[in-house]
Amino acid sequence: MTKEELLQQVCGLADGMTIQEQSNQPTVNVPVEKWLSIAKTLKSDQRFQFDMLSDQAAIDWPQENQIELVYQFYSTSLGHNLMVCVRVSRQNPIAPSLYQLWPISEWQEREIFDLFGVRYSDHPDLRRLFLEDDWKGYPLLKDYKDDFMLERPW
């Protein structure tokens, strides 16, 4: 399947899905309400067979008041890549957990919760990963400040 065909087929799964142009991988934007059902299709559908969740990252967009979750998928049987972007609101960031589909997700989601404060519903063990349990704030947000941070004088 070529990159364009793959994108077309993925976008045909549900309404509201768009192609993200500014990317070096085939990338789709998925609305957060539909994300869990689409993820199930991506895993099990014969056309996609994404059995490997290589990476999860998040991006903070304070102007748009959103946090973007970025997933990297790979299919070992069909050999294609897909990047999925899911946006959640910044005030109340809740996203579905994918740990039942890709167990590694549990681990990756804990990292994003730790650094961005995104809460994953149905996550079996949602707690801080790198920082202490009672740490205040989420360091990778753009407006994060704490007492130990040094600002450059210039």
Partner: peptide, 10 residues
């Protein structure tokens, strides 16, 4: 989606 409970190491 339900707001999940945040756990701790203990």
């Amino acid at each position: 989606m339900v707001n999940p409970e945040i756990s701790s190491l203990e």
